[in-house]
Design a protein around this nucleic acid. Sequence first.
DNA 1: AAATGTGAAGAGGTTCACAGCG
DNA 2: CGCTGTGAACCTCTTCACATTT
Lengths: 221, 221
Amino acid sequence: MIEAGFGVSIPRLYAYHRALREALAEGRSTITSTELARLLGESAAPAQIRKDLCALGALGRRGHGYAMKPLCTHLAFVLGLERDWRIVIAGFGYLGHAFAAFITAREPRFSVRAIFDASPSVIGQEWQGVRVSAITDAKRVLKDACCDIAAIAVPAPAAAEVADTLLGCGIHAILNFAPTRLRLQRKNGENVVVRNIDLAGELSVLTHRLATVALAQIEEA
Amino acid sequence: MIEAGFGVSIPRLYAYHRALREALAEGRSTITSTELARLLGESAAPAQIRKDLCALGALGRRGHGYAMKPLCTHLAFVLGLERDWRIVIAGFGYLGHAFAAFITAREPRFSVRAIFDASPSVIGQEWQGVRVSAITDAKRVLKDACCDIAAIAVPAPAAAEVADTLLGCGIHAILNFAPTRLRLQRKNGENVVVRNIDLAGELSVLTHRLATVALAQIEEA
DNA sequence: AAATGTGAAGAGGTTCACAGCG
DNA sequence: CGCTGTGAACCTCTTCACATTT
């Protein structure tokens, strides 16, 4: 029914979903592609929105626009956001902490069920009722916690090994904050999803632009 | 000399730079596009690397490969990483803290020079010698601190206003962690560069894939 | 012989423009 | 008449294949 590579960008669908959720709170019941585009800002084109939504099945009424509530529900379904998800966090420094706090506060359908850290001073502590364990206990802890998604927020050198351990425990989705492209040996054909969040890489885009603009201005003068 | 949109992806250049820096530590002095691709993992193709590097000016020797040190230096120059950069952090919760700790520990050329927060209990505290101020003091604080790049780690509703304030104080580059696409009124033609880091959006890519795979398996059976 | 530099082919995603419906 | 749905044009980025150079 729903294919993986059907030419729609998932982050974009998520943006639609978020905008709709916010607009729904204001009591509107129907919306056009043009209005939705305006909500999303300059980056969005109406034609793009129509094409995306159309790819999920015709959800609009010509001449009227889209019924917001069904659309929002359907987007949530496609994005997998109508389910609850259990998260394991590997690396409970500031970043792991920040991520835990973020999803707990903001995304009610995500819950942190397991936490790992390498530091003996952190192991044994509790966060919101979840005990921090050593990664060597991963197998035992995850058998009970039954997590779907892992967030890796450990130092770069440890990331690859931690990722392999987690995959071995049945994790199939990874959000990787460590500044390394994880190269996972995709054993026995299981498919694993990884998203990398590369802070230093993003920063370098900014510095590149700043440096380039500065150069251009010098040249101009 | 260096153009902005010359068909090269900056994150990719940054990945090359990082890989080279790591490889340099091992004492090699020359590297081929194929070897570099192997260092980067499955995502990289030798032809792509050659094309990218070629676009920066011919830096290799046919039959031999690329001299690593000059290449690394040149990449750093293009990325703007040979300069020092001053960072202001808006929002000093876990995420702001995590970002501050990350760049301080890992990126010697980036330094946190100003911190803002809305909470009275945080304002007045110090972090590594930097005092946390109220955003209302932005003008005064930033006049002294002279920052280049802002990281916005405040709650979504506050993000747009904070961003505008910072732009008004001469900031031209923003790393935005708030789950909102910032719509900046680009006043008087100044160009501002924004990178969004959308944790919830990245998560939704994972949930989408997990949900889709689960569906496919049900269908199979 | 070996690996770069690069035009040409290809793939993927975006925008256009208009037919089709309500 | 208004807005969706959608094939076609378009554009950007990636991959291929080979001429070129050391």
